[in-house]
Amino acid sequence: MPMRAVQSLIACCLAAWVCLGSQMGRATETGHPLAVGLSFDRPIDAGAAPLIVAMTDGLFSGERLNVTPNIVAGSPEAIASVASGASEFALVDLNELIRFRSQGSAPVKAVFVLFNKAPYAIVARKSRGIHVLSDIEGKTLGIAASDLSAGLWPALAHQNEIRLDQVKQSAISAAVREPMLSAGQVDAVTGFSYLSAVNLRDRGVPADDLAVLRFADYGCDAYGFAVIVNPAFAAKQPDAVKGFVRALIAGIGLTLRDEGHAVDQVLTQMEQGSRELELERLHAVVRDNIMTDEVNRNGLGGIDPARLERSIDQVGEGFKFAKRPHAADIFDDGFLPPRADRLIN
């Protein structure tokens, strides 16, 4: 074959390779978005509003990211999805990630903490004699084994000098938690404050009969939901991870400025949903979990390493570690913008 023909053939192959590369989802200088998957560990509700707003209001696309959401069955499955590369990102319970890393598993890390305080709570009926945490002695506590609040409960009880042998623990499924409490079959249940408490009010339990005993108010240092990333993806596409974080911060800002709009966007992702109920849920999440004193001081998304170390110990009290992880195994702050860009004015 003549040399000129060989050169032409090589040029054609190179052009085809470049075209194929752009079609495989790589962000290019021409503006093609990078396709990434985002796993949610439970059905979408107002607790995920900042991420939904980032998707629906063009904040991710403004960072040249084409984000495709999918729902999986719990944080362990979402973490496994990211570890395997099936999803690039996931929103998971950070304490489940602590358990995952304690097993010597893949080096998946969180890059942004959405819930600065975990939503774990004991939701009780005041009419059953429970007003503060110490009142739980002598009562029946329904515990759903699937909730990580069950694993942190022993540490919380020890910290508050509650005798566990004086609390009757009833193993229940998450599906019957609120019905059993509203029917009086148990005196209190473990769960998420913004889920169980709001759902119970929706079931007709008077708000003034509910005692919402948040673990964070009784010495629990745990962080809540956080965004994790596939380590190989983060190494190859660091700018994409930084762009994802920037879009999420912008999504939080928009959510805070117009909670009604944020809930309307969430409702587009729900098969059935009540605007009134999701607005109440979002109010609770923003107040109790996202916009905390620590966030107001230090900005969105980060962690206090000393606090995270304490929370790891608290998780380990309920779940025995094969190998205790450290804060640096759990969180990578290298993708966060400067503090000034993470403060909400």
Rank of each mutant, 00 (worst) to 15 (best):
A207N: 05
A197Q: 11
R342M: 01
E63Y: 00
M1V: 14
G151F: 11
R287S: 07
G25K: 07
G316H: 11
S134R: 08
L277I: 08
A54D: 02
G302P: 03
D45S: 15
G219A: 14
G21M: 14
G243E: 08
N66E: 13
G191V: 07
L267H: 08
P50Q: 01
D202H: 14
F321K: 11
R64K: 06
I122C: 04
R324V: 13
L279R: 10
Q169D: 04
Q166H: 11
Q23E: 15
S102P: 00
R339C: 02
V229K: 09
E276F: 04
S146T: 05
A49I: 03
A232L: 15
Q169I: 15
F100M: 06
A48M: 13
N160A: 08
V72W: 09
A216Q: 09
T292Q: 02
A49M: 05
E317C: 13
R42I: 01
K109T: 05
M55S: 07
L141I: 09
V132G: 01
R163M: 09
I312Q: 04
Y223E: 00
M55I: 11
V176S: 14
Q7N: 12
F112E: 01
F244T: 03
S84D: 15
A183D: 08
V241A: 12
V295E: 02
D329Q: 13
L279N: 06
L65C: 03
L181W: 04
G58I: 09
S39C: 13
E178H: 01
I290K: 04
R297V: 15
H131W: 02
I344F: 06
P76D: 09
K320S: 14
K139P: 10
G273D: 09
R201N: 07
D239C: 11
V295M: 10
I98G: 02
R101N: 11
F40Q: 00
Q159K: 13
S105Y: 12
S127V: 06
R177M: 11
P338R: 04
T255L: 06
R163A: 11
E161L: 10
L156H: 03
R101M: 10
A234Y: 10
D341T: 00
V113W: 00
S81V: 14
N66S: 13
D135V: 01
G58T: 10
S311R: 06
G302S: 12
L195G: 06
L282R: 03
P76F: 10
W153R: 10
E77K: 12
E271W: 04
P50S: 05
N160Y: 09
V67R: 03
D57M: 03
V132M: 05
A322Y: 00
S170A: 12
L200C: 09
T292D: 02
I172D: 05
R128I: 08
V205S: 12
A144F: 04
R163D: 15
V229Q: 10
M180I: 00
S274F: 07
V132P: 00
T190Q: 07
E271H: 10
V111E: 03
S39F: 06
R128H: 09
R125I: 06
N345F: 07
A188L: 06
S182T: 06
V212Q: 07
V167N: 05
R324M: 14
Q23G: 15
G151R: 07
G104V: 15
A171C: 02
Y223D: 01
A322S: 11
D221V: 01
R128Y: 09
M291H: 02
